[in-house]
Amino acid sequence: MIVLNQVSKVFNKGRQNEFVSLREISIMIPRQQVTVLKGPSGSGKTTLLSIIGGMSRPTSGRVTLDGRETTSLPERFLAALRRETFGFIFQQFNLINGISILENVMLPAVPNGERHATLKGRALELLAMFGLEARAATRVELLSGGEMQRVAIARALINNPRVIIADEPTAHLDSKLSGELITIMERLKQEGRTIIMASHDPLVCNAGVVDNLVEIRDGEIRDSAPAQ
């Protein structure tokens, strides 16, 4: 379970352009369920996701992951936790141009120091799971939007994370591809992974796979309830 306790985030604190992104957010995100953070652009969803995933630190407040406090961790410990626990799917996918699909998928696991052959084998298994094995050597800039999405998901799974964090994963996808993504999320949920998504796409928010819906607006939680 992920617990956020009074989490606030202020950018440029004390300056003229100070911006309060999150205000004393307190929520509990259950394990092995799909939680969607819903809200308009600028509501603080991405900031909240980045704090949950240990990519940024709050200005105040604490986050605990299965009882272990994460916000106070020194950077080297936080980096290890991030790598072992979380898989990230970004809005723009953030794949690296100029290298192959396979290399993109392998990349987050390289710092672990695993044997190259073992890592490559695992990456190929993931690509096979998403029907991309034959295109493993293709450079990512030659892929379609749907293929990029699947590569991004495969990359998020390379370290076998317990938690998948997806920021507006359907923002650049048509309805068919969005449906495919939701199907994949359903499969990941069945595997026992916790999934946290930020989205204001009704296709995602109203999907059957979603267990909890948290509505955020102006950096505050307006509503938090089990999905209908």
Partner: peptide
């Protein structure tokens, strides 16, 4: 504590 001061100390000590 999750206070702003504590988090600032944690950031800066590194």
């Amino acid at each position: 504590s999750g206070s702003e001061l504590q988090l600032e100390l944690e950031h800066r000590t590194y």
